[in-house]
Simulated assay, not measured.
Amino acid sequence: MSTSTKSPTGTKSRWSKIIWISPTAIAALFLVVLLAKWLREVPGGQSFLADFPGHTELPEGAPVGLPAWLGWQHFLNMFFIVLIIRSGWLVRTTARPKVYWTRNHTGLIRTKNQPTKISLDLWLHLTLDALWVINGIVFIMLLVATGQWVRIVPTSWDVVPNAASAALQYASLNWPTEDGWVNYNSLQLLAYFTTVFIAAPLALITGLRMSPLWPTKAQTINRIFPITAARAMHFPVMLYFVLFIIAHVTLVLATGALRNLNHMYASSDEGGWLGFWIFAASLVVVIAAWLLAKPIFLQPIASLTGRFSR
């Protein structure tokens, strides 16, 4: 009886929150747009936009264009991060996993005398994390080797007022002129820098701290970096990635979709649909991986390094 009476109330409460939050968010967004438009009209705002157009000049000799390897890296990062978010959400919300995985005693990593039993979702999450980290290391090495790092790493302090200028232009719905083939605007630059060099390492270190791979006997470092701190940071970092993906995809599609997709997937500044079709194919691969990430398909792979129990 208690279950049947609480369930409708809980559902009603959730819907009530949605009903109140949605118009509040729309009203807040409307006010932000009006404020941004007003700021653009006043003399101080016009002077600020004239002094800081929204982008910083790149160092002399900076590369122009996006190489093919960057397109592959973009796809792999999208592939891994989407599945990492999915598996991480399942780890967080699944109270009673149906399948557990225990590594073989002959595994390369030995963290305890006895192997730790973990859910299959956590095994997938950790496996994807490892592949994502390897891909990230390759990505940073290529950024440095090809000079592409200057496009996503601030090289002068005027990136801050220029980012504020770009944010004001976006908020006023009179968006900054885009030319990602040559140079990102400063708000994009800071967003990419934060994602690659701050959010990704935070996700890695907090996830590693919560994983069975972390050394439990390292008392000093465990006292400095307790698992409670890792848990408090790991979920917000995941939310950051979700918000980044939403904003990134929205702006890619809203600021010249075909040209942006050609930049990202076809390594070309020309017109046409090649980038779109490559993107569409990559989206099919990600969706297929999402749908196939189930125990029946994961167990044959996971069995190569461990055994299962329920």
Rank of each mutant, 00 (worst) to 15 (best):
I118G: 13
S119M: 01
L120G: 00
D121P: 01
L122V: 03
W123H: 05
W123E: 08
W123G: 05
L124H: 05
L124E: 10
L126N: 06
T127V: 09
T127A: 08
T127C: 11
L128Y: 03
L128Q: 02
L128I: 08
D129E: 07
D129S: 09
A130K: 00
L131K: 02
W132S: 11
W132D: 05
W132K: 00
I134G: 01
N135I: 00
G136D: 09
G136N: 14
G136F: 13
V138E: 06
F139D: 00
I140H: 04
I140K: 04
I140Q: 03
I140V: 15
L142E: 12
V144L: 14
V144N: 06
A145M: 11
T146E: 05
G147S: 04
Q148D: 11
W149E: 12
R151Q: 11
I152T: 08
V153D: 04
V153E: 04
P154H: 02
P154A: 01
P154V: 00
T155Y: 15
S156F: 03
W157F: 13
W157H: 08
V159D: 06
V159C: 09
V160P: 11
P161L: 10
P161G: 09
A163Y: 00
A164K: 11
A164P: 00
A164S: 05
A164E: 04
S165C: 01
A166V: 01
A166I: 00
A167E: 07
A167Q: 08
A167C: 10
L168T: 01
Y170Q: 10
A171M: 12
S172P: 14
N174Q: 15
P176Y: 07
T177E: 14
T177L: 05
E178K: 01
E178V: 10
E178I: 03
G180V: 02
G180H: 10
W181M: 02
W181S: 06
W181I: 04
W181T: 03
V182H: 15
N183F: 02
N183M: 03
Y184W: 08
N185W: 10
N185A: 02
S186K: 06
S186T: 08
Q188F: 12
Q188M: 14
L189V: 12
L190I: 10
A191R: 01
A191N: 05
A191Y: 09
A191S: 14
Y192L: 10
T195G: 13
T195L: 15
V196R: 01
F197C: 07
F197V: 06
F197L: 04
I198L: 15
I198Q: 04
A199H: 08
A199C: 13
A200H: 12
P201E: 07
P201S: 10
P201D: 04
L202T: 14
L202K: 05
A203I: 12
L204I: 12
L204C: 04
L204K: 00
I205D: 09
T206K: 03
T206M: 09
T206R: 04
G207T: 00
L208K: 05
M210D: 07
S211R: 07
S211T: 02
P212H: 13
P212S: 12
P212A: 13
L213E: 14
L213H: 14
W214D: 13
W214P: 11
P215T: 09
T216F: 08
T216H: 14
T216M: 13
K217M: 13
K217G: 11
K217I: 10
A218D: 15
A218M: 05
A218Y: 11
Q219I: 08
